[in-house]
Design a binder for these strands. Sequence first.
DNA 1: GTTACCCCGCCAAGCTGTGA
DNA 2: TCACAGCTTGGCGGGGTAAC
Length: 358
Amino acid sequence: MSHSVKRRPRQADVARLAGVSPTTVSLVLNNRVGGNVRIRPETRQRVLDAVARLGYVADPAARSLAGGQNRLLGVFTFEAIFPIQQRDFYYPFLVGIEREAGRLGYDLLLFTSSTGTDGKRRLYQRGNNRLRMADGAVLLGNEENKQELSRLLAEGYPFVFVGRREVPGGELSYVAADYTTATAQVLAHFFAHGHRRVAYLAHPIETESMADRRAGYRLAHREAGLEPDPNLLFQRPSAEITAAWLHTLRAQGITGMVTEMGEHVPALMAAIHAAGWSLPGDFSLAFLGDPHLNDDHDDLPRDCTTFTIPREEMGIQAVRLLTQMLSNPEGGGPRRLTLPCRFVPGSTVGPPPPLPNP
DNA sequence: GTTACCCCGCCAAGCTGTGA
DNA sequence: TCACAGCTTGGCGGGGTAAC
C-alpha cells in the first residue's frame, strides 16, 4: 500500500481556487477589511469556501518570515516542571497560561529540547535564541540563568517571567505573588496568639521569592513593635532537624516556626513527634506557600496555617502582559504585576506553651 | 565558494472599472 | 473628470538548496 504525504495547501492554492490573488486571501483571512480595503461579500465567501474545501491553515513560519507575528507564544521552563498530576505545584500556572492564550487566539509552543550537557535548560543553543520561533514567551522555573535573562532583555525579545526576577543590566517584565505581605500576615497571626520568638527556617539559596518572604518576616516584626532577631533565621538540612534541635530552640524561647521549604516539612513533623510534642499545643508551625499541592507535603496537617499563591491567575496575567507587549512594543519600560496571596489561618498555630523560667 | 532562487504570507502602493 | 470600490502587484524577510 502506497502512503504518500500530501503537500499542505498554500495561500496561492486558495487564491487559485477562489479566482482571486493571494493578497485577497490574506485580507479576508486576517479580517483586514475596512478603511482602504474593501472586499465584496461574494468574493469573501468564495475565499472562505476555498479555505474550507482545501483545509488551508496559514503556515506560522511563513507568517513570521513575512515580518508579522505568528501568534505563537512560547512556554519555557528552566527545569522540568511540567505536571504529571493536578497536585503539581506548576499545574495551575500552566492551566492559566493555556486558558488565557486560547482565549486571546494564541497557540502555545513548548520548548523542551534545550537541555545542556549539565542537565540544565538553556534559552540559547549554540548562541541562538531559540525562543524566537515564537512571538514572545512566558518563562517559569526556579533555576533560571540570570546571564541568559540579561541577554534576552538586551536583545529586546518580549517575555514575561512568572515570579519576580531581577537581573543585572535591566528590568524584566514579570507577574509576581506578594510574598512579603502574605508572610507578614502569617507572622502577625503568630504574634496575635502571643508568640514573640518565631524561628524562620530558610532555603539555602536566597531567590527573589525567598527574599520577599524574609522581607515580610522583618516587616511583621516591625509592625508588632518587635526587633527582628537575625539569630532566628536558620538554614538547616533536613537530616539535622531533630527533636534535640527543637528542644534547643525551645530553650532559646522560640515557640513557633515558619518554613519556606517543603522539603523540611516531613523532617519537622517527625521531629515534633519524636519530641513528644503536639501541634499547636507545644509548638506552632506555618508553611509559607501552598503546602497541600505536592506529595512532598503529605505529612503536613490538612489545615496548616499558610497562604495560597494565585498561581492560575499569575499564568493568566503573564499571558496578558505578554500580549500587551506584542501589540504595543513601544509601550515603554518593563511591565510588572504583583498579585495578592490569600492568608489561610489553619489550626497549626495556637497560643505558645508556658516557657520554663530562665 | 559564490550567487540565484525559492519558500510563504504580509503590507503599502498602485491599478482598473464603475457611476455620478 | 473625479471619487471610490475592489482588487492586484511588487517588495520584503532569513535560511536552505540548486546552479554555476
